[in-house]
Simulated assay, not measured.
Amino acid sequence: MEKVLLSLINSLHDSQKGLADIGEHLKDEVLKRYFFAESLKRANFRGELENELHRHGIADVNETGTASGTVQRVWGDLKAKLGGGDHTLLETAEQGEDSAKDAYADALQQELPLPLHQLLSEQQEQVLLSHDYVRKHRDALAAK
C-alpha cells in the first residue's frame, strides 16, 4: 500500500505543478482559471493520500515528482516560450493527464483496503473528467 500511495503522490505532485505551469501560460482566462482550480484539487488529493499514509504510521512523505513529469513541465515551458498557443499547451496538458490516468489505473489494480480503493476511485473520476475537459478544449481549438 505504501509504495502505491507514494507513487500516486509523486504523480499528483507532477500533475499539480504541470497544471499550474500551463495555467500561467494560457491566454484564455476561462481555461486559465480551470487549470489553477485543477492544480488545487491535485494538491488536495495529495493531502488526502498523505493523510492515509500518516494514519498507517508513515510519518515522512517525501514528494519529489517523477523525472518524466519534470521533463514534461520543461517541455511545456519551452513550447510556451517559443510562442506555442493555447492549443499546443492543451496538447501538453493532455499528455500530463494521460500520465495521471495511468497512475490511477495502475494503483487501482493493486490489493487495497476498500476505503482506500473508494478514495482512489473518486479521485480517478475527477482526473478522467479533467482529461476529457482538456481534450475537448484542445479539439475545439484545433477546429478553429
Score class of each variant (00 low, 15 high):
T64L: 06
S39Y: 03
N51G: 13
E48D: 09
P115K: 04
A20Q: 02
A67S: 14
A143K: 02
D28E: 11
A20H: 00
L119A: 12
H25N: 13
R42V: 00
K3F: 12
A59R: 05
D139L: 10
A100T: 13
V134G: 01
P113T: 08
H54D: 05
A43T: 07
A107V: 14
H25G: 03
G18F: 01
G47V: 01
V4E: 04
I22R: 00
G18A: 09
E24N: 11
V74H: 06
L49R: 00
G23Q: 00
T70A: 14
E38R: 01
L108T: 12
D21E: 14
K101G: 08
R55A: 15
L116M: 14
L112A: 07
E48L: 07
H117L: 13
T70E: 11
E111H: 12
L53N: 02
M1N: 03
K144P: 00
A80P: 06
I9L: 01
P115Q: 08
R73M: 15
L19W: 04
A105M: 03
Q16V: 04
H25Q: 13
E2I: 14
Y34K: 01
D98Q: 07
N62T: 10
D106T: 08
H13F: 15
L90M: 07
G69F: 10
S11E: 11
E52M: 07
D77N: 08
